[in-house]
C-alpha cells in the first residue's frame, strides 16, 4: 500500500519549489508594505497584539528580549545618505522604520529544520506553526534570517491579562503556553472565517473581502494584503496585491529581481538567501 503509493507518486514527491512544489496552491497570501507611507506609529503592532492574543510580557522581560511581538516595527537611525545630518530622532532626518512580520517564505528556512514537523507549508502558501506539535527545540527561530519567530519562555498568560483583561482575548485562536514557538500567521483565523463564509455562500473568495489586523489598522494604508496566486500560476484572477507586485516588477521564485525600470521601488528583504519571501517592501524615498 505504502510502497505502491511511493512508486505511483514518485515524481510528485520529488518536486521542489523550483518545479512548482508539491501543492496545487489554492491561494498565496502575501503583503506589500510601502515604507514611504509608514510613519512608525506601531498601530499595526498593537492591532496584532489584540488580534492574536499576544502576551504582554512587561518591562523586565522585554528588556531581556523575551517579548512576543509578531509584528515589530524596526527602527534604524543611521541613514547613510544623510551624512552628518543623520543625528536627529526625526523620521525626516534619519530615522527609518521597517515593519517586520513573518515573510511567509515559499522556501522557508525554518520549516525543514523542525525535528517534529511542527511547521510546514500549507496549500494557502502560508508557513504554518502547529502549537500542539511543537516541542520547543527553537531551531526554526535560529534558522530564520529575519528572526521573526518568538518563543514562549514563560507561561506568559498567567499575568499578561489580569482580570478583566482576559475578557478581551480573541476567542478564535488559542493562548499559547510555555515552551512553544509562535509567529505571525497572516491572521489565519480571519482567512479561515472568510473561506468558510465563501464556501457557505457557494462562491469564490473575493479580493479585499477581508484583510489582516495590521493592514486594517494602518492609518496611512501602507500595508496591502492579498492573494499572489496569479504570480505563481498562470490564469488565476489578479488581485490588488498581485497588480501591485507586477507594477513594481517583483517576481516570486527569484534571488535577484531584474527590473526594466530601475525607479521601481519594490524589493524583498534578504531575497538573495533564496528564501522566496511573500512580503514586498517599497523602498523609502528621501529628499537629501
Amino acid at each position: 500500500m505504502s510502497l505502491q503509493n511511493i512508486l505511483q507518486d514518485w515524481s510528485k514527491y520529488r518536486k521542489g519549489n523550483e518545479e512548482g512544489g508539491f501543492h496545487d496552491y489554492e491561494h498565496l497570501w502575501g503583503l506589500a508594505i510601502d515604507l514611504n507611507k509608514c510613519i512608525g506609529c506601531n498601530a499595526c503592532s498593537v492591532a496584532c497584539y489584540a488580534e492574536n492574543n499576544l502576551a504582554v510580557v512587561g518591562k523586565d522581560k522585554f528588556a531581556k528580549h523575551q517579548e512576543m511581538h509578531w509584528l515589530r516595527v524596526e527602527r534604524y537611525w543611521d541613514e547613510p545618505d544623510l551624512g552628518e545630518q543623520a543625528v536627529s530622532d526625526y523620521q525626516s532626518h534619519g530615522a527609518s522604520f521597517l515593519p517586520m512580520m513573518c515573510q511567509q517564505c515559499m522556501a522557508a528556512t525554518c520549516e525543514p529544520v523542525c525535528p517534529v514537523a511542527a511547521t510546514y507549508h500549507t496549500p494557502d502558501g502560508l508557513n504554518a506553526q502547529v502549537y500542539n506539535r511543537c516541542i520547543g527545540s527553537r531551531y526554526c527561530s535560529n534558522n530564520c534570517p529575519y528572526r521573526l519567530r518568538y518563543f514562549n519562555f514563560y507561561s506568559y498568560y498567567e499575568d499578561s491579562w489580569p482580570a478583566p483583561l482576559n475578557m478581551q482575548l480573541n476567542p478564535d485562536l488559542t493562548v499559547r503556553d510555555k515552551g512553544v514557538m509562535e509567529k505571525c500567521t497572516f491572521c489565519v483565523q480571519r482567512i479561515r472565517a472568510a473561506k468558510d463564509v465563501a464556501k457557505h455562500e457557494h462562491r469564490e473568495l473575493q479580493d479585499g473581502e477581508f484583510t489582516t489586523a495590521c493592514a486594517q489598522t494602518c492609518p496611512t494604508q501602507a500595508i496591502v494584503f492579498g492573494d499572489l496566486l496569479s504570480l505563481h500560476t498562470a490564469g488565476k484572477a489578479e488581485s490588488t496585491l498581485s497588480t501591485l507586485w507586477r507594477d513594481q516588477q517583483v517576481e516570486l521564485g527569484r534571488t535577484e529581481q531584474h527590473k526594466q525600470n530601475p525607479d521601481k521601488r519594490g524589493y524583498r528583504v534578504l531575497e538573495g538567501l533564496n528564501t522566496d519571501p511573500k512580503v514586498m517592501y517599497l523602498e523609502r524615498v528621501r529628499e537629501v
Binding site: 525543514p112 529544520v113 514537523a117 506539535r133 511543537c134 516541542i135 527553537r138 512553544v180 514557538m181
Partner: peptide, 25 residues
C-alpha cells in the same frame, strides 16, 4: 527543549494519526 515532556516525538514511532518526525531536520 521547551517542552521536555514531549521529547519522544522526535523518535520515528508509528502513530494512528500518521504523524512522523521531520526526517529533514
Amino acid at each position: 527543549l521547551g517542552r521536555v515532556w514531549n521529547m519522544y516525538w522526535v523518535l520515528p514511532y508509528y502513530s494512528d494519526r500518521g504523524i512522523w518526525p521531520n526526517f529533514r531536520s
